[in-house]
Computed example of a mutant assay.
Amino acid sequence: MKTATSILFDGEEELSFVARERWALWHITRACNIECKYCYGSFSGASYKQLGFHPMELNTAQCVDLAAKLNDHFDGVHINGGEPLLRKDLPFILENWVAIGVRPRVWLLTNGTIRGKSLDRVVESGALDLVAVSIDSFDAQVGNSMRERSQDALRTLKRLIDKRISGSMSAHVGVYTVAHDRNVHGLRELAENLVQLGVDYVNLQPAFSPGSEGPSGSVLNSSAWEVFQDFFSILRSGSVRVSSQGARDTAKWLLSRTGKSTAANCFADQHLYTYISPNGVVFNCPVKAHVSVGQRWESADFSVKDERRHECGHLSVDCLGMYEMASGPMRAR
Rank of each mutant, 00 (worst) to 15 (best):
I114K: 00
I114N: 00
R115Y: 00
G116P: 06
G116W: 05
G116I: 01
K117A: 13
K117L: 06
K117H: 13
K117D: 08
K117Q: 13
L119V: 08
L119Q: 07
L119K: 07
D120E: 08
D120S: 07
V123Y: 09
E124T: 15
E124P: 13
E124V: 14
S125N: 14
S125C: 13
S125H: 13
S125T: 15
G126S: 02
G126K: 08
A127W: 09
A127S: 09
L128V: 06
L128N: 05
L128C: 11
L128T: 07
D129C: 02
L130P: 04
L130H: 01
L130N: 06
A132D: 02
A132V: 01
V133S: 05
V133A: 04
S134Q: 05
S134W: 01
S134L: 03
S134N: 05
S134Y: 04
I135Q: 06
I135F: 03
I135T: 03
D136A: 08
D136S: 07
S137P: 06
S137Y: 00
S137L: 03
F138L: 03
F138V: 11
D139E: 06
V142Q: 01
V142L: 01
V142D: 00
G143A: 01
N144Y: 08
S145G: 11
M146E: 05
M146H: 09
R147S: 04
E148Y: 12
E148G: 14
S150L: 09
S150F: 08
Q151I: 12
Q151G: 03
Q151L: 09
D152N: 14
D152S: 14
D152L: 14
D152Q: 13
A153Q: 03
A153K: 02
L154D: 00
L154M: 14
L154T: 10
L154I: 15
L154G: 09
L154K: 12
R155E: 00
R155T: 00
T156V: 07
T156M: 07
T156C: 13
T156I: 10
L157R: 08
L157M: 12
L157T: 10
R159N: 13
R159Q: 15
R159I: 07
L160C: 04
L160T: 02
I161H: 05
I161A: 03
D162Q: 10
K163C: 04
K163Y: 11
R164V: 08
R164G: 06
R164N: 09
R164H: 14
I165D: 05
S166Q: 13
S166D: 15
S166Y: 10
G167Y: 09
G167S: 13
S168C: 15
M169H: 15
S170G: 15
S170Y: 12
S170K: 15
